[in-house]
Design a protein around this nucleic acid. Structure first.
Length: 222
DNA sequence: CCAGACGTTGTT
DNA sequence: GTCTGG
DNA sequence: CCAGACGTTGTT
DNA sequence: GTCTGG
């Protein structure tokens, strides 16, 4: 699953791989937690990509209490097209969450955190969806959630779910607002290939969202 | 018809 | 908003 | 995801 | 134990 992640990418790399029209202003984050503000990429009706900041934890447009977003930090790919909280967003409001890696905790024996990133160190792209919630005072609150799928063979010993990670060749399809049919999207929901990822144990420092230093991703010595 | 839910995770 | 359950 | 709280009253 | 907050 995906309940914590990092983004440690130079603006040039981000703009290049995601085809952004401008260099984003972005700083390294080593321990992003739910409810926090995060940058995501979406595409407007003209096909221009933009980097926008949103809250992690999707608040459906119809929600009376925005706190529902605290629970909706992930959406299962198997049911995202049916669930009332997600099915409108998956048709018309898809986005990509750029990342460098994510954390997973084992629950066997002791709770051990692991860090997972691309084997070659390249950026990671989570498949996400977003929504816009109107507060009583009329202001708008945009929020997103990350899709999950079955774990691949690398992740399985740690956890049975992992985020849906997109290949660069799939970005266009995912962000295309004119594509709304589930059957054109479901083939993207495969576990990312194990041999393109790497994983190592890290310090329990990462457990607290208050810790946001490079030490969070350093390999732990047992 | 109206009321009430609307989600994921892990653990047993 | 929209569906399910009573 | 994990950490941390978990309550009410009245007063300024 | 369970919910809220980050």
């Amino acid at each position: 699953m995906c309940g914590r992640f990092t983004i440690i990418l130079p603006p040039e790399v981000l703009a290049e791989i995601f085809g952004l029209p401008e260099l984003p202003r972005i700083e390294a984050r080593y321990n992003i937690a739910p409810t926090q503000e995060v940058v995501v990429i979406r595409q407007n009706a003209e096909g221009v990509r933009q980097l926008v900041t949103m809250k992690w934890g999707l608040i459906p447009a119809w929600a009376k209490d925005p706190h529902i977003g605290n629970k909706l930090i992930n959406a299962r790919c198997e049911s995202v097209h049916e669930k009332p909280a997600f099915r409108q967003a998956i048709r018309t409001r898809r986005c990509i969450i750029p990342a460098s890696g994510f954390y997973d905790w084992t629950h066997t024996d002791k709770k051990i955190p692991f860090y997972v990133s691309m084997a070659d160190g390249s950026p990671m792209a989570f498949a996400g969806i977003w929504d816009s919630w109107k507060a009583p005072d009329g202001s708008r609150l945009e929020s997103f959630t990350i899709l999950t799928t079955n774990a691949n063979s690398l992740i399985a010993p740690i956890h049975d779910r992992m985020p849906v990670i997109l290949h660069p060749a799939e970005f266009d399809l995912w962000l295309d607002r004119d594509i709304t049919e589930p059957e054109k999207l479901t083939h993207l929901y495969h576990p990312y290939p194990s041999d393109l990822l790497r994983a190592w144990p890290v310090s329990s420092l990462v457990n607290s969202p208050r810790n946001e230093t490079p030490a969070c991703i350093e390999q732990a010595v047992s």
